[in-house]
């Protein structure tokens, strides 16, 4: 079964006919040529497909495209602004927060979503006082970023890069 819809990705509108079984990740990668979002497992277990849906971090491999036609989507291709790279992108390069780069788009989108969560005061499992505003130190960042696996083991760089941007 197919459905006609309009998808808003990185502030661009894409009119599409999609298979109702199609995941957002496959739509992005196979239909829209937005291959920045990566498929590491297709099962919601690695985080490499993380994108922002209405500003929240979402695993696009677990999201059916037909369910997000009414929400703005941001992928790694849309992180950079008019005035150049997103601060996270710059910090990732500077701290060598990746090796192969395959988990990187997911890490970046996840970090952007995570910073917004913390700014809204959302606690994590390691937040000492859940009523206070969380302070993004190393431990908080590691915990909040643990849904994004990196087999190259770039975690220390990822944490350092995010910590710098969070400051």
């Amino acid at each position: 079964m197919t459905v006609d819809l309009q998808l808003s990705v990185n502030e661009q509108i894409y009119p599409l006919t999609v298979d109702t079984r199609e995941t957002l990740l496959d739509t992005l990668r196979e239909r829209l040529d937005l291959a920045g979002s990566k498929k590491g497992c297709d099962h919601g277990q690695c985080g490499s497909c993380t994108v922002l849906v209405d500003g929240r971090r979402v695993k696009s491999c677990l999201t059916l495209t037909v369910t997000v036609d009414d929400q703005p989507i941001t992928t790694v291709e849309g992180l950079a602004g008019e005035d150049g790279l997103h601060p996270l992108q710059r910090a990732f390069i500077e701290h060598d927060a990746f090796q192969c780069g395959y988990c990187t788009p997911g890490q970046l989108c996840s970090a952007a979503g995570m910073l917004a969560e913390a700014a809204r005061g959302w606690p994590s499992a390691v937040t000492p006082d859940v009523a206070a505003d969380p302070v993004l130190g190393e431990e908080e960042i590691r915990e909040r970023m643990s849904g994004n696996l990196c087999r190259c083991g770039a975690y220390p760089g990822i944490v350092a890069a995010i910590e710098e941007v969070a400051r």
């Binding site: 990668r29 992108q89 990732f92 390069i93 780069g101 990187t104 788009p105």
Partner: peptide
């Protein structure tokens, strides 16, 4: 690095 953080680096299936 720039290609990798912007999603422009193309991997095999892309």
């Amino acid at each position: 690095g720039l290609e990798k953080v912007t999603g422009r680096a193309r991997y095999a299936s892309e």
